Amino acid sequence: MITFYPDIKQVHVAAALTSGTLFALRGLGLSLGMRWPRVAPLRYLGYTIDTVLLTAAMMLLTILPAGLFANGWLVVKVALILAYVVLGVLAFQPTRGRLSRTVLYAVALLCFLQVYGIARTHHPMGLLALLG
């Protein structure tokens, strides 16, 4: 299975970037008051991309099962992913006020950027580690 690690990682990275881009575009559209971000096909596309992303992540974890506990950066990344998901769900709730949705969306995007930075640097501080 280790033979497929580079291919699975490439699928994982592509799915992560696609998922983040779709979230950013949908959130921007919602913050501008547009209706297209709420259409069912886009939601289902997001679910599909996230399923591929999670499947690839689980495959990578099974290839290197000790990786989760051996790397502090991976634990921080998983925690930030959970925060990103919760904030994203809250940001897309139509019952919230516009300002509340915008703040939640912005914080969710910051979480996504930090997850990206952690994945690139393999450091719990992510992109912030490059400042020091």
Rank of each mutant, 00 (worst) to 15 (best):
A119K: 07
V78D: 00
L45Y: 11
D7A: 14
L113K: 03
Y5L: 08
V107M: 09
Y116W: 13
R38L: 04
T62I: 06
L60G: 09
P65Y: 10
N71G: 08
V52Q: 00
V78E: 02
L45F: 14
R96H: 15
L131G: 05
Q93M: 11
G72D: 09
P124T: 13
V11I: 15
G29F: 05
R120N: 02
G97Q: 04
L68Y: 13
G97S: 07
Y105L: 08
R96T: 07
L110A: 11
G97Y: 05
L74G: 08
A15C: 13
D7Y: 14
S31I: 03
I118K: 00
A106W: 12
V75P: 10
V39P: 00
L28Y: 15
A79R: 13
G126Q: 04
M125Y: 11
K77M: 09
F4S: 14
G67I: 10
G27A: 03
R120A: 14
I81R: 01
H123N: 12
Y105H: 15
I49N: 08
M34S: 10
P94L: 05
W73H: 13
G27Q: 03
F23D: 04
R96F: 13
P65N: 05
L127F: 15
P124L: 08
R26L: 06
T48H: 04
Q93L: 09
R96P: 04
L45M: 15
A129T: 13
A15F: 08
G67R: 10
A40I: 12
L25C: 12
R35S: 06
T51D: 06
G132D: 04
I63R: 07
L87N: 02
A91S: 15
L61M: 12
L60H: 12
T102C: 08
L32W: 11
T51R: 01
Y116M: 09
R35C: 01
N71I: 00
Y105D: 09
M1D: 06
P37N: 06
Y116T: 15
L17F: 15
V11D: 00
I63H: 02
M125E: 09
C111R: 01
A70H: 14
A108L: 02
A106I: 08
N71T: 00
T121Q: 05
A91Q: 01
G132C: 06
W36A: 13
L17W: 09
T95F: 13
Y44P: 07
L32E: 09
W73G: 07
L80C: 07
G29Q: 05
L82P: 00
